[in-house]
């Protein structure tokens, strides 16, 4: 292959006599893998310039600049509200949550109420036990059923009078 044209272009390139289009031809030539040995030493120059042309700012730079001057971002999804498709189950989720909360409150309320009633019953039984006479308890301890029933059963006043006579 004849590389005379490329060599001529290269000579004109060093002398700053090439146009931008001719320089683009040179750049494309040196991008290919098959470069003759006589021109190989200049390949690194053009390849290095390609690499330099690939230097970029960070991706968020443009957004940052727009925010600094008070304009909206170039990426609307990064700042706006995202639309989502809602299923029936997902749509009803707040009601489920509310129902669950009510159920929990009712359970706690019932449990508190029940424990209050139990406490009242326990207090009443204790008070009743304190009002029973000591000898009746002795009777209970002695194991006499008659004495027990007699002691525990309410006595009419006239019956009591007959006994005392």
């Amino acid at each position: 292959m004849d590389y005379k044209y490329i060599e001529q272009l290269l000579e004109r390139y060093w002398e700053c006599q090439t146009t931008l289009e001719e320089e683009a031809i040179l750049r494309n030539f040196f991008r290919q893998a098959d470069v003759p040995a006589s021109l190989l030493r200049y390949r690194q120059l053009f390849n290095e310039e390609d690499k330099m042309a690939d230097e970029h700012l960070s991706e968020d730079f443009a957004d940052k600049m727009l925010r600094m001057i008070g304009e909206e971002s170039t990426q609307p999804h990064s700042r706006g509200v995202k639309a989502r498709r809602l299923t029936v189950v997902r749509r009803m989720r707040p009601f489920y949550r509310a129902a669950g909360l009510v159920a929990i409150l009712l359970t706690i309320g019932n449990a508190a109420h029940q424990s209050f009633i139990d406490e009242e019953e326990t207090t009443a039984s204790t008070q009743m036990a304190e009002t029973i006479p000591a000898d009746s308890i002795e009777g209970i301890k002695a194991g006499s059923p008659d004495k027990q029933s007699a002691a525990l059963a309410p006595q009419p006043l006239d019956t009591l009078d007959a006994f005392t006579r």
Binding site: M52, E55, E71, T74
Partner: peptide, 28 residues
């Protein structure tokens, strides 16, 4: 406008600043 005319120059300006300062953070 800033968005259509000025902002697209950013990368070009960055390469220039980078070749002068030799430091990416300073160039930015």
């Amino acid at each position: 406008s800033f968005r259509t005319t000025v902002l697209p120059l950013s990368d070009r300006l960055f390469r220039l600043a980078l070749r002068i300062t030799m430091n990416r953070a300073e160039a930015q």
